[in-house]
């Protein structure tokens, strides 16, 4: 399959699910062509609500729809959703409204638009809210299954998606399991935990390291909350050293989540790879090279870390 952005996979999945699950409703804030909720909007115009550029009201309206039994997917860029954190906190989390927040355009991988449109702190914020689950799929098949899971899951969910196309990582017979990490490549010297758009690059980095004689295990963490504690501890026991890779600020993201588990259960050395400051404009390829999220950048950090 050619590379596909997870937002595109989401749009296709939602369009299909709309037929099967009649309680699904979708809201967008003037970005339906970017979040790909447009596909659902065209097929089910009576169950799609264009809310204009007013994200707080979109999130609150989604909460009300959920309280009346609907399954609302409220879509925007991840950074714009978390900009309305207080509404998410009260109207969704503390109200325990069954709202699915879909934040696209995650990370520096969006490229030229620059920092203002990049979701770089969203995992940190959404992870802090009780009642919320946080999911970031890494390819087409995982996204589609995650969307179906989320629709049927009772409780608020934050789904983080990419603008840029992603290569397939998982096999055609893949089965998404909520809260479970996926070992993509085994290894004994180090474990690389990656999430979302950088899982594929981490896998390529693992292969590069193999050539240097470093046996790296690569694990896809699609469910960042609740995180797979058991697998993280097991990997620490078996490979000793741990690396995390994410297109997100290293404060509060996947790296922090992994370190929280290890610090409390089985402390080992951890290296966090991710963004440490604001993003900037550039092509996604140039940005991943500059910020060390390309396969060589990841491999280089791992080599340094293991020295």
């Amino acid at each position: 399959m050619p590379a596909k952005a997870t937002r595109v996979s989401f749009g296709e999945a939602l369009e299909e699910l709309g037929e099967k699950i009649r309680d699904i409703v979708v809201l967008d804030a003037d970005l339906s062509k970017s979040t790909m909720s447009i596909k659902f909007a065209k097929k089910f115009p009576d169950r799609f609500f264009e809310m204009g550029i007013a994200e707080q009201n979109m999130i609150g309206t989604a909460a009300g729809l959920a309280l009346a039994g609907k399954i609302p997917f409220a879509c925007s860029f991840a950074c714009f959703l978390i900009g309305r954190y207080e509404t998410i906190r009260m109207s969704v989390a503390y109200t325990n409204a069954n709202v699915k927040l879909v934040g696209t355009h995650a990370g520096i991988g969006i490229g030229e638009d620059g920092y203002s449109q990049m979701g770089l702190e969203d995992i940190a914020l959404m992870r802090a809210l009780p009642n919320f689950s946080v999911i970031q799929p890494c390819d087409d098949i995982e996204t589609k299954q995650a969307v179906e899971y989320i629709a049927l899951h009772q409780g608020p969910v934050f789904l983080r998606l990419t603008r840029q196309p992603l290569e397939d990582v998982n096999p055609p017979d893949y089965k998404f399991q909520f809260g479970k990490g996926v070992i993509l490549k085994d290894g004994k010297d180090v474990t690389i935990f990656a999430t979302g758009g950088v899982v594929f690059n981490s896998l390529l980095a693992g292969e590069k390291l193999e050539k240097d004689g470093i046996s790296a295990r690569v694990v896809n963490i699609h469910t960042i909350k609740p995180i797979d504690e058991e697998l993280i501890i097991k990997c620490a026991v078996e490979t000793g050293k741990i690396v995390t890779v994410e297109d997100h600020n290293i404060v509060g993201g996947l790296g922090s989540a992994v370190m929280e588990v290890l610090a409390e259960n089985y402390p080992v050395k951890v290296k966090r790879i991710g963004i440490k400051k604001f993003g900037e404009s550039g092509s996604p390829k140039e940005l991943y090279e500059k910020y060390g999220l390309d396969p060589e950048g990841i491999a280089k950090e791992v080599r340094e870390f293991l020295k």
Binding site: G60, T61, A63, G64, L65, L67, P72, T87, A97
Partner: peptide, 21 residues
């Protein structure tokens, strides 16, 4: 019906319930 107290949010929630109706 809803958790409130952080002001400004209730009318959006009410609107969502009305839309569902």
């Amino acid at each position: 019906e809803a958790s409130t107290g952080s002001l400004g949010q209730g009318l959006s929630i009410a609107q969502g319930i009305a839309l569902a109706g």
